[in-house]
Simulated scan of single mutants.
Amino acid sequence: MPKHLAVAITALALVLPAGAAMAAENAFTDLDLKGCAVTDSAPPDGDENGKPEPYAWRCKGYGSWNVFIAEGDLRAGVAFSRARRFEDDYHYFPKFSVTGPKVEWRGPRRGNAIVPEAAIFRYIWSVDGRKGSVLAIARLGRDATDTCVFGYVDAVANPDANALAARVADEEAVRWVCNGNSPKWYGKVGEDFR
């Protein structure tokens, strides 16, 4: 390698912060339960002989990732896994909610594909006539112990909510330690969450 090229590469490495060598890119997948595989069903509450109704689904994510959705107590639960079955805890939003129609996957590009390090999805919530939406940010790790929802962005209180969630995903996901703590709020937070 020519000496001037080696010096330039070394200088560039000193200027770039750790983890900044590969910029994050994104891809989107649909999150429509009509196109997802039912993984669990049960008779309606109070009707032991009723026809089972689905309450959990596996939706195709990006690459080898799956998005698991569960509904219970009028709340949507979400989990990410490379496995075809999910047996661990779902992340439930604390208000009555459903999921939005898309998942954004973020990570560095390697070859023709993105290697997802984070995912962003939307909870659409309503309580007592009030409604809104929150972007949830998940770290995508090796397995269930280091894959978790770690951040929220109030999409009503922040006019730049999508850009803020993308920045948080890119800067925080790889450093986040999934340890069972509640997700952290980023940006402005509306009165419903204070």
Results as ranks from 00 to 15, higher is better:
Tyr62Asn: 06
Ala138Lys: 03
Asp45Tyr: 13
Pro44Met: 07
Arg85Trp: 12
Ala21Leu: 14
Asp128Asn: 12
Phe96Gly: 13
Gly190Tyr: 05
Gly129Pro: 08
Leu164Gln: 01
Asn158Ser: 10
Arg130Ser: 12
Ser182Tyr: 13
Tyr186Met: 02
Asn49Leu: 14
Ala6Arg: 13
Trp125Tyr: 10
Val15Pro: 09
Arg84Lys: 15
Ala76Asn: 00
Asp154Thr: 00
Leu31Lys: 00
Asp30Met: 04
Lys188Glu: 12
Ser182Asp: 14
Asp88Glu: 13
Val156Gly: 02
Arg85His: 14
Gly63His: 09
Gly50Val: 08
Asn158Val: 13
Thr29His: 00
His91Tyr: 15
Asp128Cys: 03
Pro94Glu: 04
Cys59Pro: 03
Trp105Glu: 03
Thr39Val: 12
Asp30Tyr: 07
Thr99Asn: 05
Gly35Cys: 10
Pro17Asn: 04
Ala163Glu: 15
Ala8His: 10
Asp143Lys: 08
Pro101Phe: 03
Ala79Phe: 08
Gly72Met: 10
Thr147Arg: 07
Pro94Tyr: 04
Tyr62Gly: 03
Phe93Cys: 11
Cys178Val: 05
Ala18Phe: 02
Glu53Pro: 01
Gly63Leu: 02
Val156Leu: 05
Asp32Phe: 01
Lys51Thr: 13
Val189Asp: 04
Ser182His: 12
Glu71Tyr: 13
Trp57Pro: 06
Met22Ala: 15
Trp105Asn: 01
Ala166Pro: 03
Ala8Phe: 09
Glu87Val: 06
Trp65Met: 07
Val78Asn: 05
Leu5Trp: 13
Lys34Asn: 15
Val153Gly: 04
Trp65Gly: 05
Tyr152Thr: 01
Leu140Val: 10
Pro94Trp: 02
Val38Lys: 11
Asn162Ile: 09
Val38Thr: 05
Leu16Asp: 03
Phe121Gln: 07
Gly132Asp: 10
Cys178Thr: 00
Glu87Asn: 13
Asp143Met: 09
Leu5Cys: 05
Arg122Glu: 11
Arg110Glu: 14
Asn162Arg: 14
Ala11Cys: 07
Ala138Pro: 01
Ala161Trp: 04
Cys178Tyr: 06
Thr147Asn: 03
Glu71Phe: 14
Ile114Met: 01
Gly151Gln: 04
Cys59Ala: 08
Lys188Arg: 15
Asp88Asn: 11
Val189Tyr: 03
Pro43Cys: 06
Pro116Arg: 04
Ile69Glu: 00
Tyr62Thr: 06
Tyr90Pro: 05
Tyr186Trp: 11
Ala144Pro: 10
Leu164Pro: 11
Ile120Lys: 08
Asp40Pro: 07
Ala163Asp: 15
Gly187Gln: 10
Thr145Glu: 12
Ala161Thr: 00
Ala70Lys: 15
Pro44Asp: 02
Arg122Phe: 08
Thr39Arg: 14
Leu140Ile: 06
Val38Tyr: 12
Leu135Asn: 00
Arg82Cys: 01
Glu191Phe: 12
Asp154Cys: 10
Asp143Pro: 06
Asn26Val: 11
Ala157Arg: 02
Val127Gln: 13
Pro54Trp: 09
Asn26Leu: 13
Ser81Ile: 07
Gly107Ala: 04
Tyr55Glu: 00
Asp170Tyr: 01
Lys60Met: 12
Gly72Tyr: 08
Asp47Gln: 15
Asn49His: 08
Asp73Pro: 00
Asn181Lys: 15
